[in-house]
Design a protein around this nucleic acid. Structure first.
Lengths: 252, 252
DNA sequence: CGTCAACTTGAAAGTGTTCAAGGTCTGTGG
DNA sequence: CCACAGACCTTGAACACTTTCAAGTTGACG
């Protein structure tokens, strides 16, 4: 999965249309001429271990990316949103399965052709690397979350993440929608549906979020939410300066 | 962090020396002429958030790669071993801090020059991508571990991982050494030192591992260890075939 | 309006953490 | 070579948080 969060792809669709037809100026442009495909909610795009013959650009809808363990347990390693590219971890086989959370529309592109085109373009190469690094950074944040955040911190982090993604589009209200089920959220956060549900209730009782139907939430106290998410400032300034090496290490 | 586990870099040092001086045949070769630097055990190579001016090739010793949360909790996202490259997540700032677990020797290379050289070489580019993908795959495995493995499964996975790494070098005995402290292991596996210690004792009592000093373990029953690690076959064959979607999902 | 899946809530149980104490190893200096 | 100090590791008991199991509620859609 490669989220379209960073740098290079701030250029959105309208920009792309302009600078096109000769040489694609951004990665999405490669998919531009491909026919649009539909995928109903709940359908699988590909399975972990499948030969990775194609990449996809998600144009509309939401995908979940997950792995299934031997005993049936599922781990959702991420959700993908419009503008994201799917399956760019350039191996011979997909590292994960991909399913539609909502009805989706996407474009397909041969992986081989993708690699050749990107490899041959000094424009596109750094964009691919940038995306991979964004993905890597996200994976590491997720490891931090799973390693040492408790249920409340996890859910707050998740909600905050959803809010930020929403704000990149329309900077309007604080109502974010959660198209995925509680089970999806649970499998993403390493919790059970019951814990997700209970924690959500707790946040509501505290007045931090307000319910807005089953599949959306209104974030009332953004600051408190950020604080509870336990992500501090995300950046400890620079260099050696303040590295609090106190032994007061907490867990949960 | 980029582990040297896969494909391209199976070519080891001796191979590299031969095909050198004109155009580097592999990523490590770039570091070849750089002066060797020392780093004592416990010393920091760089901090998360520092400007990423250099990349490193780890020649000898072990590094730990970690993030510190606002409240002082530490998450070790990986260990690096000889042959690995450090800091290749090509952002402007390091994503994590790096410290020497044991006394290490490494070579430094300007990140800018690295990017330029790799970018200009059709030989090296796919190698970089391959490493990034390996790193991504490792990160995802770690997410699976942290998401839904219990203490025993985590420790078994870790030991197995160490064993496999050892076997890539000398296929000899089943004694792996663990240069890192229990605290390092705990912070890597998302547990406490006490739990790591207890679980280690339990594995010993079961006769799965035998103690061989504080900083090494003898793996006695590899099969049992692999089974307890709960990693099944790692690959569910291909395609749609058998996807056990039973609801009997367990956790812990 | 009924049905089914999704969600919520409660109570009991389990796993890992926390706190505390004791034990072991290693390096240093006598 | 031995003794000591300090860091590291092990073990025990109480506790906390999440899970598990179970029942009830809500809401979407035919």
């Amino acid at each position: 999965m490669l989220s379209a969060s960073h740098a290079e792809q701030a250029q959105n669709y309208s920009d792309v249309v302009v600078a096109f037809d000769k040489e694609p100026a951004c990665l999405q442009a490669l998919f531009w001429k491909q026919p649009m495909e539909q995928l109903d909610a709940g359908r699988t795009l590909f399975f972990e271990g499948d030969q990775a013959k194609h990449l996809f650009e998600l144009v509309e809808g939401v995908l979940r990316i997950f792995k299934i363990m031997a005993d049936g347990r599922r781990v959702i390693t991420g959700f993908l949103y419009p503008g994201d590219l799917v399956g760019v971890s350039l191996r011979n086989h997909y590292l994960y399965s991909a399913e539609a959370v909502t009805p989706t529309r996407l474009r397909r592109f041969s992986r081989k052709a993708f690699e050749e085109t990107v490899s041959g373009s000094p424009e596109l190469r750094p964009q691919l690397l940038a995306r991979l690094c964004d993905e890597m950074a996200a994976a590491q944040d997720q490891m931090v979350l799973l390693s040492c955040k408790n249920a409340e911190e996890r859910l707050c982090s998740f909600l905050l993440q959803q809010l930020q993604r929403k704000r990149e589009q329309d900077c309007s209200s604080n109502v974010v929608d959660l198209p995925m089920t509680r089970l999806d959220i649970a499998d993403y956060l390493g919790l059970t549906i019951e814990t997700v549900s209970r924690t959500m209730t707790k946040l509501t009782n505290k007045g931090i979020v307000g319910p807005a139907g089953r599949h959306s939430v209104c974030i009332i106290k953004v600051g408190t939410l950020a604080h509870l998410a336990g992500e501090g400032d995300e950046y400890h300034g620079s260099s050696s300066s303040v590295i609090s090496l106190d032994n007061t290490r907490r867990r949960h």
